[in-house]
Design a protein around this nucleic acid. Sequence first.
DNA 1: TAATATACGGACCGACAGTCCGATTGCGCA
DNA 2: TGCGCAATCGGACTGTCGGTCCGTATATTA
Lengths: 199, 199
Amino acid sequence: MSERADAARNRRAILRAAEELLAAHDARDGARDGAHDGARGAHISLDQVAAHAQVGKGTVFRRFGSRTGLMQALLQERAAQLREALESGPPPLGPGAPPAERIVAFLDALCRLAADNLALLAAHERSCAPDRHADPTYVRWHTHLQTLITQARPDLDAGFVAHTLLGMFDADMVRRLTPRADPGRFARSMRQLVGELLA
Amino acid sequence: MSERADAARNRRAILRAAEELLAAHDARDGARDGAHDGARGAHISLDQVAAHAQVGKGTVFRRFGSRTGLMQALLQERAAQLREALESGPPPLGPGAPPAERIVAFLDALCRLAADNLALLAAHERSCAPDRHADPTYVRWHTHLQTLITQARPDLDAGFVAHTLLGMFDADMVRRLTPRADPGRFARSMRQLVGELLA
DNA sequence: TAATATACGGACCGACAGTCCGATTGCGCA
DNA sequence: TGCGCAATCGGACTGTCGGTCCGTATATTA
């Protein structure tokens, strides 16, 4: 036995509470359209999360270690499905398709994931700012891309390119480049750029 | 008259103090080589800056409005020379050369600027995280790139590509991709990637 | 030199990440 | 079923920091 029942229950409660607060932010912020609204940032404090989860603050820290830990756990959860698809799903997302196609499929999937989780992404960025490159999910994505890029374009600096491509998914950038009038712009421009690189 | 003499003196003192603290961080952190050292971040508190500048905290806020304001001022100062060169210097950095060359020259200049001001860049990122896209220096750089890209490759989404290219200059990324053993890697990989895009 | 707009400094505030410890409770075991 | 302990809980507490306030000091100008 590695985790007591109440502990597991609280872990779930905390994750769900964080999601709900994030979603609330998303809704509230999303309501504002048009030009950017300056001081962005889904700032949910851990006190809020604890209160919303009906749990003591200490519990949050015992379960997740820190704000960063909570955010990483949250992102990991949301990314689980994608991870599964990458590792053992059908091509082109999963193994089996030529690398260039897998890259495009992966980035498309990231677009969707980003669009559906803007607030989480923003909060995650903010918390992990110190070195987002240490986040397990980021590392996994980076490794995946790097491998594929190495196969598709052995002449490029795959690590560098992978970082650059992942850099596109900055929450603020996604938001800015996803205007109401043309919600497909981000994905389209992204695909075009990747096309250039793999051509 | 727009600013009293003592006010101007203090403004300079604060800027210099911030630079010195940042440099101290840089030195201390830079001493560590090899693998990443986790919790990065040139975190200089405004209390520290005020103390180091031998000035009251209130003065810092009166002059710069906020932490973000201070960071923006700092970056603007460091970027002044580059700005000058872009607007009225000799080609290819300044006007007169073909857009593709100007883009490369500009990004090369950014490489140098980034390398020389890693700590500032990191601190700036951290403070302006909410929306770095509102920073005057960032906006200037983005506009510059966007214009040139539009000329060089009218078929691309210039705004998107410009953001992506600027995204490469994330302090953490620069640091990671500038190993002691091969300090030219970042600039080289960057040039290669840009070459692909403009080809 | 007097009058006034400006600037100064540092005490003060509220928010928040993270810590601590006495009270509580799930759970294996007899 | 009931015991006992280890794990968990909760929320008070701490230290830090960005930002505000206001009584005092000073540059400036006439």
